[in-house]
Design a protein around this nucleic acid. Sequence first.
DNA 1: AAGTTTCGCTACCTCTGGTTTCGAAACCTA
DNA 2: TAGGTTTCGAAACCAGAGGTAGCGAAACTT
Lengths: 187, 187
Amino acid sequence: MSLTSSTPARPPGRPRSGVNDVVFAATLRTVCELGYARATVERIAAAAGIAKTTIYRRWPTKGALIVDCLLDAFGPVPVKGGDRAEIMASAIRWAAAKIGEPGVGDAFAGVFSDGVSDPGLREILSSRFQDPYRLALQEALGEPEHRVLFFIDVVVGTLLHRMGMTGEPMADDDVDALVEMVLPSFR
Amino acid sequence: MSLTSSTPARPPGRPRSGVNDVVFAATLRTVCELGYARATVERIAAAAGIAKTTIYRRWPTKGALIVDCLLDAFGPVPVKGGDRAEIMASAIRWAAAKIGEPGVGDAFAGVFSDGVSDPGLREILSSRFQDPYRLALQEALGEPEHRVLFFIDVVVGTLLHRMGMTGEPMADDDVDALVEMVLPSFR
DNA sequence: AAGTTTCGCTACCTCTGGTTTCGAAACCTA
DNA sequence: TAGGTTTCGAAACCAGAGGTAGCGAAACTT
């Protein structure tokens, strides 16, 4: 009998060093310190203690690196229990808190704006980042796709606009106002 | 008696050629055709039929050019007559229509994202672009500053997020949904 | 020991924002 | 018409960023 499927025949050659977590941390740290534009791939690599070429061996573009970094930073959306209003409110507060974490909002806004004029990056952002959360919310809320997309546009768009215009994440009482604005239109 | 103040003693030397409108049109056209990132200053100048240096003589950075171009494209916000709900609804639809015009949404999202990591550009964007509209809305709506800022975050953020994620402006029925979501929280 | 893959390093290319330089053109005044 | 002042277009140029190529060394498996 062959090996179990959980050890799927490691491919030959030198294995990749497990530096993904180090790279993600270095990415957020560098973006937080220098801003998105000055957080070059070379600087991120230096902060992670690896070579720039190693990053380009794992992520095809800087945008793809940022998207994976954001996926790692956000993790799954909390949709456990409660009624729909509670799920939506907790999702909004969760998004606001994550975007407020150091570097996350900057990285998000930066990659988002890069995607405006880069269809390839927009595809990555939409399929790898937005779609999983959209699907989870569709299932948890029982809302049709276009309503969930609208919900995401409002919540994320508002939070990013505040971050982009002021450089600061949205304060808690404005997040409260956002919750109270959004919930009634979905009841 | 000296000349009237309406002809304020033209300064000596060759006068500037009146090409601002041509440059604005060329900017939107180029952004629309190539996207924000590929709409280089050199290409914009070529589309306008002038030299790149002429652009840099009038605008200190590409971001400042885009901001002026957007100011020209948006014009003043319509706040005439009606009750507050009508004013807010017409402002939302006006913003959606402007952002949907060819090149405008791309340019807006592009300069917005550049500002994320460029405090100087963010200052230009905030003071020259957002503030005039904020003040006009404050006066027309009688709302305090932070409420109007929140209103702008929601409306513009939502519209730009849709534009950035899909590459297309928001459809009319979603704009309707946005109006119906925002208005009740301001009554 | 052989084979395969990844590593770090360096050098390199392309593109973009932005600056500098310089001669020519346009305008005013005398 | 001559002189002064400013802008124009053209070209060369610079710095920084994304991304690629080539190389020898290191880390695994068999």
